[in-house]
Nucleic acid binder design. Structure first.
Lengths: 127, 127
DNA sequence: TTTCAAAGTTAGTTATGACTAAGTTAGTAT
DNA sequence: ATACTAACTTAGTCATAACTAACTTTGAAA
């Protein structure tokens, strides 16, 4: 029952999740613009994500995350926020670079690392 | 003249560089074991790296880095060491996890980030 | 010097995930 | 109601980078 999520899947789920916060209805073109990919790339990705039970998507319709999909999206976004805080607030990397690199690194850090960063940030908040 | 190096190429170059520090002669099987890939994967990778002028490799012979190849290997390893110090020494992540994740993250950080981490570590050395 | 096992190569396959080209759908404007 | 356009899908291609199977080379032991 090992359902390994790829970097790419996590990116799509996270993007859908973030668009949903602002737009109520998420469409293929929104995702394509956010990720700088073409429409067919999104359609293809959604097909795979549907098969894995991570999104609901009817042809020409709106895109929604399933419970599992939203769980992964939130976890990924959580990592992103932690990494951004570390890179930007603590280490002093520019907002832009920190955002972009958090987006790349978020796919590679373990639960252990996430926890340790969280604790580290807590310690350094009141400094 | 944009010679983009992939994550995979960087891994091979870095591995060859590190083996060379210990073994004088680097062989296909050493690289395969280090990276946990098969021999044909290494042969294939070396062919591409040769074409890009990053390694010298004669059939059934030893593997050597060119000047350019060594430059990339050193840069990658430098990032690895910085990330390891950040993750392990500062944030407190276990040696094993820190090493593995530094190895993944090293391919995604910019010169800016590298510099900022270096400065950060310097500041926190005398603490 | 012959043989044989380990190392290495070649050829062909697979998976992922992007792309273009071409065709379909659906909703807005007339 | 019709037509038009933006959004979307389908089909097929390409690049990367791994893999297995089968064959070749090399060097060390007999």
């Amino acid at each position: 029952m090992k359902n390994k999520t790829t970097k790419s899947s996590e990116d799509y789920l996270e993007t859908i999740y973030l668009i949903k916060q602002k737009k109520r209805i998420v469409r293929v073109i929104d995702v394509a613009r956010c990720l700088s990919v073409t429409l067919p790339s999104v359609t293809g990705a959604l097909k795979k994500l549907s098969e894995k039970g991570l999104v609901k998507h009817t042809s020409y319709g709106e895109i929604e995350l399933t419970e599992n999909g939203e769980k992964i999206a939130k976890e990924t976004w959580e990592k992103h926020k932690l990494l951004f805080a570390l890179l930007h607030d603590i280490i002093g990397i520019s907002e832009n670079t920190a955002y972009k690199e958090a987006c790349l690194i978020e796919h590679f850090i373990s639960k252990e690392t996430e926890e340790k960063i969280k604790q580290f940030l807590k310690r350094h908040k009141n400094k």
